[in-house]
Amino acid sequence: MRILFLLLGVFLVCTSCAKSEDAFFNETSQKWLLVKMTGSIVYSETTGKDMAWQESLIFNTDGTFIKSRTIEGTEKEAFGTYVKKDNKDYSYLELEYTSGSELKASCGQSETLSIIGGNLLVGSWNICDGPRLEYKQSNK
Score class of each variant (00 low, 15 high):
Asp86Trp: 06
Tyr92Pro: 02
Thr112Pro: 04
Asp22Pro: 08
Arg132Tyr: 07
Gln30Glu: 13
Gly9Asn: 09
Val13Arg: 06
Ser138Thr: 02
Lys76His: 09
Glu55Phe: 00
Gly108Leu: 07
Ala52Tyr: 10
Thr28Leu: 06
Thr28Phe: 11
Ser99Ile: 00
Thr28Ala: 09
Ser99Trp: 01
Gly130Trp: 00
Ile127Gly: 07
Leu121Arg: 07
Thr81Leu: 03
Lys36Phe: 01
Phe59Gln: 04
Phe11Gly: 06
Thr61Pro: 04
Ser99Ala: 10
Thr38Gln: 14
Glu77Asp: 11
Asp89Trp: 05
Gly100Cys: 03
Asn119His: 11
Lys76Asp: 11
Gln30Asn: 09
Ile127Lys: 14
Gly39Pro: 01
Tyr90Ser: 12
Glu55Val: 01
Gly39Leu: 01
Thr74Ala: 10
Ile3Val: 14
Leu34Ala: 03
Asp129Arg: 09
Met51Tyr: 05
Trp125His: 10
Asn60Cys: 05
Ile3Ala: 13
Leu103Lys: 04
Lys136Cys: 01
Ile58Leu: 11
Thr74Tyr: 02
Gly9Tyr: 09
Phe79His: 15
Gly118Thr: 04
Glu72Asp: 14
Gln109Ala: 13
Thr81Trp: 01
Leu34His: 03
Tyr43Trp: 06
Ile3Glu: 11
Arg2Gln: 10
Gln30Asp: 07
Arg132Ile: 05
Glu21Val: 14
Glu45Val: 11
Thr47Asp: 07
Tyr43Gln: 13
Asn26Thr: 15
Gly108Pro: 00
Phe5Tyr: 12
Leu33Val: 14
Glu134Pro: 02
Val122Lys: 15
Tyr97Asn: 05
Leu4Asp: 09
Gln54Gly: 08
Ser40His: 11
Ala78Ile: 00
Gln137Val: 06
Asp129Phe: 11
Glu134Leu: 04
Glu21Pro: 14
Asn126Gly: 09
Val42Ile: 14
Gly123Asn: 05
Cys14Val: 13
Phe11Arg: 07
Leu103His: 03
Thr74Pro: 00
Lys36Tyr: 03
Ala23Arg: 15
Asp86Cys: 07
Ser106Met: 02
Tyr43Lys: 14
Tyr43Val: 05
